[in-house]
Design a protein around this nucleic acid. Structure first.
Lengths: 256, 256
DNA sequence: CGCAGTTTTGATTCATCTCAATTTGTGTGG
DNA sequence: CCACACAAATTGAGATGAATCAAAACTGCG
């Protein structure tokens, strides 16, 4: 497995935006992601309470870790802007990307169970995250019922998402996996106000392959095939979906 | 996909053990599974509070559903005795087993996110579960910090477990998957006081295959190979692990 | 502008699937 | 209690999708 050489910096002290009144003002209540993020569905007054949750911000440069497997768990993170991957590294050197996360999504819940993070979280582009100290999240969850409920929903959806990936890995063939992946990305970009048809992949073919349980060559071939069939147009990491219906049909039409 | 013909009964009214003082007495505080289940790590007085959580018991006969995808979500379930599988059915007929659950484990958290269950839960042997109405669980979680914390840990561990399955499906070959599966079962049986070496599989080869992303024939062949190599002995659903170290070596030794 | 990393494409190999036949086990009703 | 039908498991032979190995083309970063 090609070990990707990337900056090795995980220092928290630097990069942490200090908490000032002004920075807090710009927290959840002012954030245009709040409909996608933790505060979803809360009232104005409740969101005001949440503002105090955010224990600061942190910029994470492309290729840098937000946290590593083995790091003590202290907080979960909301992505304010940017793009991340999470991966697991086995002792024998095998690794797998377990997910890609974008703005408004929550990172770090893998650490709650054991008080230690169980995967690595790496920025795929220069990013910024909101730090939500977990002790405070639990504290406030005990007071604000809607926050408690929403946090539980976020965790549950992560479980359901993982089941979807298991389905994908367990029953789908290569092209179906890639189609499902592209449609999923498209749908998530749409929810953030970006074009459903056109987007930029922030990950390599190898990372896509790792996530989909395929080799990078297979991913590349599937891209080429989709392009030949006029389902998408590919220019490196630029994707344009030409026939979303065709991709969906690929999914439901179980081949053999 | 062979559709397994099984009883179609999902009626809740029958089979629900009514809540009486005596049945409540026998709830968590008296349950020998409490170290594995939700009340783990709570104090005596806290467990006494939890006792009120259990909104009744329910027996689920082998082959019957505890809940189905699409059912409204109202409660999570703790397995008091027995064995379950969860599975997902896609529109095109493909299905996949997403997990096997045994005594002391929690079922139903997939429903929290959308208020609707997203998978089917089916008993693989005559079983009995404790019903934990979710509204009450959240209510009590707001009062009992240790319960809140533990519930979050249970959910997080489910996420981490799913990541492990993704790893297995994405990077391991057939025999590694089966070895990982057997070692995992062995470890869970051990935690419940059963023999680590010898146990009864409650699922068919097809169900194992579905969970591991393999065809039943491949599972059967892997069993035979393990037996030829004196790693295990197999008699139908009876498994005896002869060389746990050998199985573990199979896992870490990435083949190609 | 050059070089390292990434992507594409081709030829070949291999693990698992598929199809098929047989054996073994299980539950039901006479 | 036995026989029958059906479900589950084993095993073999052949087909196939994805991995592997290899080489060339492209990209963009410094």
């Amino acid at each position: 497995m090609t070990q990707i050489k990337r900056p090795d910096d995980n220092v928290q002290s630097q990069n942490v935006v200090p908490i000032t009144l002004t920075s807090l003002k710009a927290a959840c209540s002012q954030c245009n992601l709040r409909e996608l993020c933790l505060p979803y569905g809360l009232s104005e007054t409740e969101i005001a309470q949440i503002d105090h949750l955010v224990g600061g911000r942190r910029k994470v440069k492309r290729g840098h870790h937000l946290y590593r497997a083995g790091d003590p768990f202290e907080a979960i993170y909301a992505i304010k802007m940017g793009f991340f991957k999470t991966d697991i590294l086995l002792e024998d050197g095998r690794d797998q990307v377990t997910g890609f996360q974008m703005a408004g999504e929550i990172l770090g819940m893998d650490g709650i169970g054991t008080d230690v993070h169980t995967c690595n979280s790496i920025a795929l582009e220069d990013s910024e995250i909101c730090i939500i100290p977990f002790v405070q999240l639990e504290q406030l969850s005990r007071e604000v019922q809607a926050l408690q409920r929403h946090f539980h929903q976020v965790m549950s959806r992560e479980i359901v998402r993982d089941h979807g990936v298991m389905m994908l890995l367990g029953t789908m063939r290569a092209e179906e996996r890639l189609a499902a992946f592209l449609l999923n990305l498209s749908q998530r970009f749409t929810a953030r106000g970006y074009s459903p048809q056109e987007f930029h992949l922030r990950m390599t073919r190898e990372e896509i392959g790792s996530y989909l349980g395929l080799k990078l060559e297979t991913v590349s071939r599937a891209f080429s095939r989709f392009q030949d069939d006029d389902l998408i147009s590919v220019h490196q990491k630029h994707i344009r979906i030409l026939d979303a219906g065709g991709l969906k049909r690929l999914l439901n039409h179980q081949a053999p």
